[in-house]
Computed example of a mutant assay.
Amino acid sequence: MLWPLASLLTAILATLFVGWLVDQTLQRLAARHPDAPVWESLRRCRIPLQLTLLAALLLLSHPIRRIFPSEDSVVLHTVLLALIASLGWLTVRILAAVLEAVFSRYETITEDASRVQRVRTQLGLVRRVGAAVIWVVTVGALLLTFDAMRTVGASLLASAGLIGIVAGIAAQSALGNFFAGLQIAFSDTVRIGDTVVLEGQQGTVEEITLSYLVLRLWDYRRLVVPVSYFVSKPFENWTRRDPGLLAWVLLHLDHRTPIDALRAELERFLTGTDLWDGEEWSLTVTDTTPSTIVVRAMMTARDPDATAALKLATREHLIAYLRDHHPDALPRVRTT
């Protein structure tokens, strides 16, 4: 009895030692290469690695058979299930670490932000699809360890066609979202970090899964949208090719407004602000009414956030300038 217990204790201690040794090695590699996140990602594989190693040692050394001779088959089957499940868990963690390393490498050698976002979105969906496939295979392997499942396997395969048709009809929406997610990932229509507008709601794409997409709105609310929406309905993507946008401000002013002075003030303001990207700007009179003129100021910015901030700042500055230097330019209601 002592020898089986000693074998069991040795297997547990060996598993803990191997896990500690692997973790220390990865920690040192991460310290030597701080720019490579793969080592930190692989450290998350420690627990499934230890479980896999422990289950394998228990199956090979058979200490449980000597400790529980009357329930040998049940205990060994439980250990086998633990081994298969931990292997699936370990494979998912390794896949995530490898894909993160691929993205990190691509991010360092590519300066195009749009390509980085596209690859980030694609690898994220590849990770989810790969994890789903691994878990399906793992669950299938777990079920095949039971004699009852192997016995009914032939009948299940015979009825697989009918079951597939029924499941396809019942899960039509879910399957549509699944394939829509794959289409979005590899067609480059929308990526993580893009600024989009759908049905009047402007937001930044925060997360893309195989079934839904999360938008972070300007007031920090989250809008969850099925991914099938983006392949069946039109939407605006402000940052698909170039994140730069054109901001514009409309001012209703009096006919006596000095347009040249206002134009020079706009140029001076844009030159002194970091929100303007230095590309384009203009100030023109676009319309007139019996009581006012409509002045439009346009300027470019590097991204949607800077565009919104520049638009607000320009409006405030021009109104303050007219109030302080040309008060007659502000619109007023004439009674005579």
Rank of each mutant, 00 (worst) to 15 (best):
I319F: 10
F68W: 12
D324Y: 09
V249C: 02
A247W: 01
A180S: 11
D254T: 06
T300S: 14
W20E: 14
F178I: 02
W39A: 01
D260S: 09
V285P: 06
T52C: 13
F235P: 01
L9A: 12
L245A: 07
L26S: 04
E279H: 15
V214R: 08
P63M: 03
A97E: 01
Y321V: 06
R191S: 02
Y229Q: 05
R93Q: 10
D328T: 13
S70H: 15
L60A: 15
W248C: 08
R268H: 08
V197C: 08
V136Q: 06
V119F: 07
R302W: 05
E267S: 12
V137C: 11
P331S: 04
H326K: 09
K233C: 00
E236C: 08
L322K: 04
V79C: 11
G244K: 11
V294G: 09
S7A: 11
S173R: 12
S282R: 14
W248M: 11
S155Q: 10
L245V: 00
L156F: 09
T25S: 11
V38H: 02
G181Q: 02
L322C: 08
F269D: 05
L9C: 07
T195R: 05
Y321G: 06
L13M: 09
H326G: 02
W39Q: 00
A85Y: 06
T91G: 13
T189N: 00
A301L: 05
A320D: 12
V137R: 04
S104I: 03
K311L: 06
A158G: 13
T121A: 06
G140F: 13
I109C: 04
L245G: 05
Q172S: 14
L270D: 01
P243F: 00
G244C: 03
R332M: 02
N177M: 01
S291P: 06
A320T: 14
F235Q: 00
L13K: 02
L57K: 00
E207A: 12
L217M: 14
G164T: 13
R43D: 03
A297Q: 10
R65F: 03
L21E: 04
L175H: 00
V22A: 12
A171E: 10
G203A: 09
L80K: 12
L215F: 02
T271K: 15
D305F: 10
